[in-house]
Amino acid sequence: MNLFRLAGDMTHLVSVVVLLLKIHTIKSCAGVSLKTQELYALVFAARYLDLFVHFVSLYNTVMKLVFLASSFTIVWYMRRHKIVRRTYDKEHDTFRHHFIVLPCLVLGLLLNEKFTFREVMWAFSIYLEAVAILPQLVLLQRTRNIDNLTAQYVFFLGAYRVLYIFNWIYRYFTEPHFVHWISWIAGIVQTLLYGDFFYYYILSWKNNVKLELPA
């Protein structure tokens, strides 16, 4: 465990906690894409299949449980909670996320580290995570006044992957045979997708103006 990876995991944790607190306290999910939340729940479900069969560390197990619980809780809130579900911006959250699940599954079948069920699911989850933010970014472009918590959620979610890239660089130079092309390429694609969001987010933060993403 290196500092970049720990910082990455903590930033990822902060992003889901920020979102969960927002939804739980103000009972609103305005500006939040249910599709992105569903994709993330799928990412964790596919990636953490080895939760009970492959013990890495207490930290690893606890964090997996936290990510699984939080992502499914958020989906539950947005689908089932009688107050929260009414604040869901259904008509603007129209990204056809089925169109990204299938290609990621096919890619997972074609490009994986080993052709086993768990490895294919792992690769699928890595590809899916790289594009899971797309519905949320599209929704932000359509949302007039983006509330701070949602913007912070997206920012931390992007920041965690940037930190992971530093983690991979560090591990590449410190651990022999540490090569994970799948994570590296998908992680870079994922980070690039946040590119313009980061640009406008930092600009709005610097000029102290409301965040606006050009449509």
Binding site: H12, H54, K64, T116, N167
Partner: peptide, 10 residues
């Protein structure tokens, strides 16, 4: 060793 499938990262 099948080190590739022990994904130790989250």
């Amino acid at each position: 060793a099948n080190e590739e499938d022990d994904h130790d990262e989250l």
